[in-house]
Design a protein around this nucleic acid. Structure first.
Length: 587
RNA sequence: CGGGGCGUAGCUCAGCUUGGUAGAGCGCCCGGUUUGGGACCGGGAGGUCGCAGGUUCGAAUCCUGUCGCCCCGACCA
């Protein structure tokens, strides 16, 4: 039996909801797929659920193909496992916490690594039980500081999360690869363009991590890619290190007056006006060494100042900084920080002064000093002399100053070289739709998941975790498949296979429509049938377009001649077809 | 957390400047006409004007406070 609009729980809105900005949010609400319950929390209406289930079915099939077994954990979990791994506190305000009537702490799980690990620990203790991959499709909860864009960043969202358990590194590699392959099949079946980028493995002790990004302007992640195939999240981009230059024969550094030059731009202008280069080339920002002072707050609450030196033509990328210093938090040093460190002359900070080294753990300030990898030995710089209104010219790295290490802190720019030599990179925006991650032994270590190996020795299990944002994918598909009339679902995820509508007041149109529904369903297709009487054709056509089922059949004025129309939602084309041949004509 | 905007009917919004019985369109219900691009006529249901306090004879409107929501940014395996 077809699903009839007269009895279905579906209400379309004539106007756009006022609180929806992005296309997917606007259309999914207007077409009756979802309703907002609270910021970042949505109810699923029947037609929306069908799309969600279509996506989940594809994921389940490919998880099965990858040898993973489905389980289901509660979303509501006790505090203890998360306390053990430190995530109860590390997750900070992002965690939904609650208490039961006795005052015991619970949380709504943001991900389930802990309980998956403990489940396996409970039941397995031999290498013979491994490898194992298990997964669930579950709602996750994160108290986002700012939920936005409807389903794209919600506080409750559905995720497929899989976890693999191996006792050898090679086994982990194989499990990881199996999930990675499954992801490629899933996204291909969903018709979703994706780019696999190297991702930051983060502070959680992971070793290898890749993100599946869908290129889209609404994306929140910036990634880089080269024509030669390199792709990386901007946080994971690794700077190509130039060869060191010879130091012998370079002239000594000189301290020169540079009044009123607190910024790189003013410094370059003054240098060109007052101290032109002997070779006639103009000074540029790239000739200057910018020293940025940051304040780190470590997990234990201690505050540490760190100085970062980078070419003056590059900005500091705070996202890359965060990754570099995680789990510590980084921010710009405050006036109070400078006040406590009189060795730093703001606007004229540099690694060196005529009195000796200023930056570095062994220096006058004792402040840790990290350099951009481009600042190799033998490079010459204009930089602050730590004297008010003075800069030093020709300061040579490796001769006049050294650092405590290097750091990936500078912004990545289009045209920068890919680290694998595959050419210059371009920058693009993407939305993370999947993430595969070798966790290694971090969780197993902390939670004590060990098995006996072939030699009867206890070995710690090594794990992977693999996530796909189900509801986010749904929104992304909606985002990329619509026109000014409404949604246009790809057949693979369309809530119904065919939309049948009858127009006019002639009962013959409705009986023809019923006949068409039956014929289509006989071929195994699902049908949504607009059987509403007394609704004008314009409304019916408009709803059909808004709802976005790709194949539409119109039973109307042709039925007397035994003809209905096949309406292609994608192309807009309408083709007359004999009623008896509709099912075949759908292909 | 910073910046901006908004809370009035199921939805989209007007009314607030200048205080005086709460409005429109759409949707919904009843009757009738209409039926290939969001038709029309007549009748009707539906609102603590976010909340609290204040000013006033009288507050959706003015004042104070508060809560919530949306957008941008910060933040976000």
């Amino acid at each position: 039996m077809p699903t009839r609009l007269t009895t279905y729980f579906l209400r379309t809105l004539r106007e756009d909801p006022s609180d929806a900005e992005v296309t997917s949010h606007r259309l999914l609400v207007r077409a009756g797929y979802i309703r907002r319950q609270a910021p970042g929390v949505f109810a699923w209406l029947p037609i929306g659920l069908r799309v969600k289930e279509k996506i989940e079915r594809i994921i389940r099939e490919e998880m099965t193909n990858a040898g993973a077994h489905e389980v289901h954990f509660p979303a509501l979990l006790p505090r203890e496992p998360y306390e053990a791994t430190g995530r109860w506190t590390e997750y900070g305000d992002g965690l939904f916490r609650l208490q039961d009537r006795k005052g015991a702490d619970y949380l709504l799980a943001p991900t389930h690594e802990e309980v998956f690990t403990l489940l396996v620990k409970d039941l397995y203790n031999s290498y013979k039980d491994l490898p194992l991959s298990i997964y669930q499709i579950q709602d996750k909860y994160r108290d986002e500081a700012r939920p936005r864009a409807g389903l794209l960043r919600g506080r409750e969202f559905t995720m497929k999360d899989a976890y693999s358990f191996d006792y050898t590194d090679a086994g982990l590699d194989a499990s990881y690869q199996a999930q990675r392959d499954a992801y490629e099949r899933i996204f291909t079946r969903l018709g979703l363009e994706y780019v696999i980028v190297k991702a930051d493995a983060g502070a959680m002790g992971g070793s290898k991590s890749e993100e599946f990004l869908h290129p889209t302007v609404v994306g929140e992640d910036t990634f880089v890619r080269s024509a030669g195939g390199y792709a990386a999240n901007v946080e994971a981009y690794v700077t190509e290190v130039p060869d060191a230059l010879p130091i012998d024969g370079l002239p000594a550094a000189v301290v020169l007056d540079s009044p009123n030059t607190p910024t790189i731009a003013t410094l370059v202008d003054l240098a060109n006006a007052e101290y032109p280069r002997p070779d006639g080339r103009a000074w540029t920002a790239a000739d200057t060494l910018k020293n940025v002072v940051l304040a780190l707050t470590h997990l234990d609450g201690t505050r540490e100042l760190v100085a970062i030196g980078l070419p003056g033509d590059r900005e500091v990328d705070m996202k890359r900084i965060e990754v570099a210093f995680a789990p510590a938090e980084a921010e710009q040093a405050t006036e109070a920080d400078f006040a406590k460190n009189p060795a730093l002359v703001k606007g004229y900070i540099g690694p060196w002064s005529p009195l000796g080294a200023v930056l570095g753990e062994e220096s006058a300030s004792g402040i840790r000093f990290l350099l951009d990898p481009r600042v190799v030995d033998g490079t010459e710089w204009i930089t602050g002399a730590n004297l008010d209104q003075k800069h030093v010219f020709g300061l040579v790295a490796g001769r006049d100053f050294t650092a405590d290490g290097t750091i990936e802190a500078a912004e990545v720019r289009a045209g920068d070289p890919a680290p694998d030599g595959s050419g210059p990179v371009e920058l693009a925006r993407g939305m993370e739709i999947g993430h595969v991650f070798q966790l290694g032994r971090k969780y197993a270590d902390v939670l004590g998941l060990k098995v006996l190996d072939e030699n009867g020795k206890l070995v710690t299990v090594t794990m992977g975790s693999y996530g796909i944002g189900v509801t986010r994918i749904l929104a992304i598909i909606a985002e990329g498949n619509n026109d000014d009339k409404g949604l246009v679902w790809p057949a693979a995820v369309s809530p119904f296979d065919v939309y049948v509508l009858a127009t006019g007041k002639d009962p013959a149109a409705f009986s023809a429509a019923e006949q068409v529904c039956a014929a289509i369903e006989a071929t195994g297709r699902s049908v949504l049938y607009d059987d509403r009487p007394k609704v004008s054709p314009g409304v019916k056509f408009g709803d059909a377009e808004l709802i976005g089922i790709p194949k539409i059949v119109i039973a109307g004025r042709g039925v007397a001649e035994g003809v209905v129309e096949l309406w292609d939602r994608v192309t807009g084309e309408r083709t007359p077809v004999a009623i008896t041949e509709v099912a075949d004509a759908l292909g």
